[in-house]
Design a protein around this nucleic acid. Structure first.
Length: 275
DNA sequence: CCGGACGCCTGTCGGC
DNA sequence: TGCCGACAGGCGTCCG
């Protein structure tokens, strides 16, 4: 499910309820996630949440106080994960794998049908964490520019769609927003990354930034089961120009949107206005 | 190093 | 109605 805008929406949704709160209890109903839930997450118990932030598609909840080692909780929503805030006594539904119960009486509940997600403890230093240390720049920060994208793609024959979905190049761009950004930039998804001009790299970097920012404003994209922590959907599905629109008319030209599998993932584009 | 394929897991949908 | 394959918003690993 979730790409950068959905994770950012989740972060903003849970932060007010979690920030500064003491962790009362952690309930693990099923530890069999992609990375098994470690016993070490109990290190969070009794401690205070110092900060919440996002790196790529990871949510990082840092613990404070002097009562334990530096570190915190790492949450990744995988393909089908979501977080919601609820009363702890609310009966757990299918695939509600972990509860984080706070002193305030609020419960953060992690649901993930496919179990590709992560809910674990991380130790400082965070930038040495195996899942984080090789990540590229954040697309909404200034280091990510057309200039950067140009330099990061010279000599590569990989399809540009796969290139911008590569987290070593830039983080947070998943299957939906890759198609959307390429459409907005007028670039064909199978074009070799190394054969895109500096000018068009600039347009692509802008398109990636714009589509992600716009999606965050809309609370993300709900296609199937993504919900915000307050159980509301995200409304960016209304703004999608090509994703899941195979066979339908292009909004920008008289062409027809096509679906094509690239890198084992469905890709949508207009052959008439993307080159 | 690069590029591509595979597997992890459950649920849903369309065709027969 | 049941069965079966295709497909789904991610990503680490393995292979040539």
């Amino acid at each position: 499910m979730p790409e950068l805008p959905e994770v950012e929406t989740t972060l903003r949704g849970i932060s007010p309820a979690l920030s500064g709160q003491r962790v009362e209890q952690i309930i693990v109903r099923n530890p069999a996630l992609r990375v098994p839930v470690s016993e070490r997450i109990t290190l969070a118990r009794g401690r205070t949440i110092r900060s919440l932030r996002r790196r790529a598609k990871y949510l990082l909840i840092e613990m404070g106080g002097d009562t334990g080692p530096p570190g915190g909780l790492m949450i990744h929503l995988g393909m089908s994960g979501s977080l919601r805030l609820c009363p702890p006594e609310l009966e757990a539904r299918k695939h509600d794998h972990v509860d984080l119960i706070l002193a305030s009486g609020t419960c953060l509940r992690f649901n993930d049908p496919r179990r590709f997600g992560i809910f674990n403890w991380w130790d400082d230093p965070l930038d040495e964490h195996p899942l984080l240390r090789n990540l590229g720049p954040e697309p909404l920060e200034a280091v990510f520019s057309g200039d950067y994208l140009y330099r990061a793609s010279r000599g590569l024959r990989v399809a540009v769609k796969n290139h911008i979905m590569n987290s070593r190049v830039v983080v947070g761009v998943g299957n939906i927003y890759a198609s959307e950004a390429l459409h907005r930039a007028g670039i064909h998804p199978t074009r070799a990354a190394g054969r895109i001009s500096a000018d068009r790299c600039g347009r692509l970097a802008s398109a990636i930034r714009d589509v992600l920012e716009r999606a965050i404003e809309r609370g993300g994209t709900t296609l199937r089961d993504f919900t915000r922590p307050d159980a509301q959907p995200g409304y960016f599905a209304q703004d999608l120009l090509v994703y899941d629109r195979g066979g339908q008319r292009c909004y920008r030209c008289p062409g027809t949107v096509r679906r094509k599998v690239i890198g084992q993932r469905s890709t949508y584009y207009c052959p008439q206005c993307q080159h």
